[in-house]
Each structure stands twice: as structure tokens, then as C-alpha cells.
Simulated scan of single mutants.
Amino acid sequence: MSDVPQVQPVRALVTGASQGIGRAVALGLARVGFTVAVVARTARLLDELVEEIVSDGGRAVATAFDVTDPAAVAAGVHALELELGGFDLLVQAAGRIEGQEVPPWEVDPAQVKAVLEANVLGPFHVVRAVLPGMVARGAGRVVDLSSGSASKDSGRYAAYGASKAALFRLGGAIAAAGAEHGITAFELSPGVVRTAMSTSMSQHADRTEWTDPEEVVAMVAAIASGALDAWSGRYLRVGADTPESLRAAEGRLTANARRLVVQPYGEDDPAV
């Protein structure tokens, strides 16, 4: 991991940390000096993660709660803040996808509700619990684990796509409202990492090349270091982007580049 920026020890909260990309990010951040608070629903898996981080010389604490339960989120984050003194980085990796690749009119309503609760309401609950502390300290960075589904239409996984587009809008709102408080926010698509979620999707059934989780860690660490603050409120994609390529492209950013916007049909379009 020589290409991962070395950062000053800071405090990170990672949701969805018990497995998949969230777990990889928590491990990677701990290796480069973060004190990591890990959150998920299963206490046993979190305990195993903390043990692995500590045995590797890092520092980690854990609290199990479901991000869809606002009272549990508020209590859990408060307990972690009392222990660590607050957070400099929030990585929102908790999420889910519907279990069937069907057009929107065939999706099970219960699955739609579960996806939106986990991927939209959950992040809102976490933001309400974590961001006031960042505002009070005048600094903080938020990384939402996004998806290509947030930026393009697809005939399948409509609930997931809708949830990631909504999360993108939440991140943009944080970037806009938080700028005067020293807060930045980023929508980070991790590429296609081999996880239980990605391997369950038939569209990846024949995939042989997967995104290395260490590339995701490197991007999150670069964001945490402040090197990519010019990209606050924008969409980044691991595999297509690198910290180096993004820094090189800063001078080419326009107001709407990599943002979730409605494109005009021309300069005289009255609607935008």
C-alpha cells in the first residue's frame, strides 16, 4: 500500500464495516494511522474486526446498531463520540440492494422499502448524529459509497439506483451547506469490488476482473488528507479515477462537472 497517502492520525467512523467494502476500508484506514470506529448490525463480526485491527497495531472501537433506527444511531454515535472525542471522517458504506433483477413495475414493494431505508434514510440518520460535531469543530469530511447506478439509468435494480441518486443529492447538500463550516462531501463509486452483494448480481456472473479494495482505501485516504477537496460534492469512481488523475484534472473542473444535474438542451433552455 505504498501509494496510499500517509495521514496524521484522525478519527474515522465507518458504517457497514462488518463485511465487504466497509470492512476493507476500515482495515485500510487503520493501517495508515486512523483511529477507526466501526459500525454494523452484527456485534460478533465487529468484535472480530476490532481484534484484527488491534492485533495489527491499530486502534479501533465498535458499536453495533442498525442505521435505519434513528434512536439507535443517535445513542451509538454519542457513545462513540464520548470515547473518541468526535470524528474527522465519516465513511457511509452501509447499504443493500433488492434481490431481483426485474423492471421497476415488478419489484417487491417490501424490498423497495428496505433498500430506501438502508441507503437513504440510514445515511440521513447518521448525518444527523455525526455532522453537528463536525460543524462545531469547523472541519470534517464525508464519503458516501456511491455507484454508477446513481448517475445513469438502468432497467434493473431501480430501487438501488434511486437510492444512490438520492444519496448523491444528500452528499451535494452536505457539500453546499457545509462549505462555510469546513465540511466537504464526496460521492465515491468503488468500481466493482468482489463482495457478497456484487457476486449476487447476475450482471456480474461472468466477470473475471474486479476492483482491488486497496484502490478504494487509497482514494478514501486521499480524500481524508484534503488532497481532493476541490472535488467536494462530486462523483468519483475508483478504477477510472486515481488520486493523481483527479488532482491533475482540478483545473478543468466546471461548475457542474461530475455533479447530479439536469443537462440543458441548449444555451437558451429556460428550464435550467
Score class of each variant (00 low, 15 high):
Val135Ile: 13
Arg169Cys: 09
Arg128Cys: 14
Lys164Met: 06
Ala162Cys: 12
Ala150Phe: 04
Lys164Gly: 11
Gly148Val: 08
Ala159Leu: 11
Ala150Val: 11
Leu170Trp: 03
Leu131Gly: 03
Gly155Ala: 14
Arg128Glu: 15
Val130Trp: 00
Ser146Thr: 11
Ala136His: 10
Ala158Glu: 06
Asp153Asn: 06
Lys152Arg: 14
Gly133Glu: 06
Ala165Asn: 01
Gly155Val: 08
Asp144Phe: 10
Ala165Ile: 04
Ala158Leu: 04
Ala159Ser: 15
Val143Asn: 01
Gly148Tyr: 10
Val130Asp: 00
Ser147Trp: 12
Ser147Ala: 12
Leu145Met: 15
Asp153Ala: 14
Ala136Val: 13
Ala136Phe: 06
Arg141Tyr: 01
Leu167Met: 15
Gly138Thr: 13
Ala162Pro: 02
Arg169Glu: 12
Lys164His: 06
Gly138Met: 04
Tyr157Phe: 15
Ser147Tyr: 03
Ser149Asn: 11
Arg137Leu: 05
Leu131Gln: 07
Gly155Asn: 10
Ala158Trp: 12
Arg137Tyr: 02
Val126Ile: 12
Ala158His: 07
Gly155Phe: 07
Val126His: 06
Leu131Trp: 08
Asp153Arg: 02
Val126Phe: 10
Ser147Val: 10
Lys152Asn: 10
Phe168Ala: 15
Asp144Glu: 09
Ser146Tyr: 07
Lys152Ala: 14
Pro132Ser: 01
Gly138Glu: 07
Val135Tyr: 05
Gly148Asn: 12
Val143Cys: 03
Phe168Lys: 11
Ser146Glu: 07
Leu131Phe: 07
Ser151Asn: 06
Arg156Leu: 15
Ala159Cys: 09
Ala159Gln: 08
Gly148Asp: 08
Lys164Asn: 03
Val130Asn: 03
Tyr160Phe: 15
Ala162Lys: 09
Ser147Arg: 11
Gly133Val: 07
Val127Cys: 15
Ala166Gln: 08
Val130Ala: 04
Gly138Ala: 05
Leu170Tyr: 00
Ala129Met: 12
Ala136Cys: 09
Arg141Glu: 04
Pro132Arg: 00
Ala139Tyr: 01
Ala129Asp: 10
Leu170Phe: 02
Ala166Met: 10
Arg156Asn: 09
Gly133Cys: 08
Tyr160Cys: 07
Arg128Trp: 14
Arg169Pro: 00
Ala166Pro: 01
Gly140Arg: 04
Ala129Cys: 12
Arg137Cys: 02
Ser147Asn: 08
Val142Glu: 01
Val135Thr: 11
Val135Met: 10
Ser149Thr: 06
Ser149His: 11
Ala165Glu: 00
Asp153Ile: 10
Ala150Leu: 09
Val142Leu: 07
Met134Arg: 04
Ser149Gln: 10
Leu170Asn: 04
Ala139His: 12
Ser151Met: 14
Leu167Asn: 07
Gly133Pro: 03
Ser154Cys: 11
Ser151Arg: 13
Val126Trp: 00
Arg141Ala: 11
Val127Pro: 02
Met134Trp: 03
Ala129Gly: 09
Tyr157Trp: 12
Val142Trp: 03
Gly133Leu: 07
Ala136Ser: 12
Leu131Ile: 09
Asp153Ser: 11
Pro132Asn: 01
Phe168His: 15
Val143Ala: 04
Ser146Asn: 15
Ala139Phe: 04
Lys164Val: 08
Tyr160Ile: 08
Ser151Gln: 15
Arg128Phe: 15
Gly133Thr: 02
Ala162Val: 13
Leu167Trp: 08
Val126Pro: 00
Val127Arg: 01
